[in-house]
Simulated assay, not measured.
Amino acid sequence: MILLLGVALVFAALFLVFSSIGGLTEERGGVARSLEMLEAMNNAPKELSESEADRPFGERVLEPLYLRAQRLGRRLSGADSSERVRHKLDLAGNPPGWNVDRVAAGKVVGSFVGFAFAALAAVVFGIDFPIWILVVLAGTAVGFMAPNMYLYQRAYERTEKMQRELPDAIDLLTISVESGLAFDSALQQVARKTEGPIGEEFARVLQEMQIGRSRAESMRSLADRTNMPDLRAFVSAMVQADSFGIPIGQVLRVQSHEIRTKRRQWAEEKAQKVPVKITVPLIFCILPCLFIAVLGPAAITIMRDLM
């Protein structure tokens, strides 16, 4: 403890020395800038000063802090973080109000919030100083990773929902094409009748096609925005059918059968995992209660007889 305190005091002394040296070198420039600022404030119109003072608290204080947090988050995340964050946002369905800058700022704000909560919890519970440092570092790391964890959870839930909805959407697309509709019209019909992320993705494909992108490019973008193997296989089959001139109705019928078979296998896999998952609550929650209910009276009787 004394060693850590000494190291902290040494760093504080060095910081004060360097700060004083920097202040001496920039003292004249700082005084000149202050005089210029005071002169400009005296010469400024009164209406401008009043309008500056009447600005909301968010514009005067919160917005500059938010911009600083964005810049700091970009520096901490790295140069290639924008593409990775944008891909995570696409996987999460682009939540309203979320963008790359907000994620970068959220990492910095989350770090400060995690640091504050971890330090407060360590002080309240009276944790020793070495463990206090570990708790604070862990809280800061959790706060920094909080936006990424939120996007991961949103992407996981969205993928699970798309996995359940994809066979029905492909069946509706197959029926629409076989009934005489063109592929674009059938896709529009599916986007209108289907609710959830599948309908949103098909609607986005139609929007990209309307602004001039080709069907193959729009479908490939759909595959890039998701991490579902079934949807990627469907997009690949549609692009190949469009390139080689294969009848789309036949390809859709095959894809619909395969995707529905895979969904049945996925459901069977989930059902096979239930006995393994229920083992832990069975051992730690159900069996102790059962033993107490069955063996409790016998144990009380034995204790009375022995006493």
Score class of each variant (00 low, 15 high):
Gly6Arg: 14
Leu9Thr: 05
Ala12Gln: 07
Ala13Phe: 10
Ser20Glu: 12
Ser20Tyr: 14
Gly23Met: 14
Gly30Thr: 14
Ala32Met: 14
Arg33His: 11
Ser34Asp: 13
Met37Gln: 15
Met41Ser: 15
Asn43Met: 15
Pro45Cys: 11
Leu48Met: 08
Glu52Gly: 02
Leu62Phe: 11
Glu63His: 14
Leu72Val: 12
Ser77Glu: 06
Gly78Arg: 05
Gly78Thr: 03
Glu83Ala: 15
Arg86His: 09
Lys88Asp: 09
Ala92Lys: 04
Asn94Ser: 10
Gly97Leu: 04
Val100Cys: 05
Arg102Tyr: 06
Ala116Ile: 00
Gly126Thr: 06
Ile127Gln: 06
Leu134Arg: 01
Val136His: 05
Thr140Gln: 05
Gly143Ile: 02
Asn148Lys: 11
Met149Lys: 07
Met149Cys: 05
Tyr150Gly: 03
Leu151Gly: 08
Gln153Trp: 09
Arg158Gly: 07
Arg158His: 01
Lys161Val: 04
Gln163Gly: 13
Asp168Lys: 15
Leu172His: 06
Ile175Tyr: 02
Glu178Val: 00
Asp184Ala: 08
Gln189Ile: 06
Ala191Leu: 07
Lys193Tyr: 04
Thr194Ile: 04
Thr194Ala: 01
Glu195Gln: 12
Ile198Cys: 03
Ile198Gly: 05
Ala203Met: 10
Arg204Met: 02
Met209Trp: 08
Leu222Met: 10
Leu222Cys: 00
Ala223Arg: 03
Met238Pro: 05
Gln240His: 08
Ile246Gln: 15
Pro247Tyr: 03
Gly249Pro: 01
Gln272Tyr: 09
Lys273Phe: 02
Ile278Arg: 10
Val280Gln: 12
Gly296Gln: 08
Ile300Cys: 10
Leu306Arg: 12
Met307Cys: 03
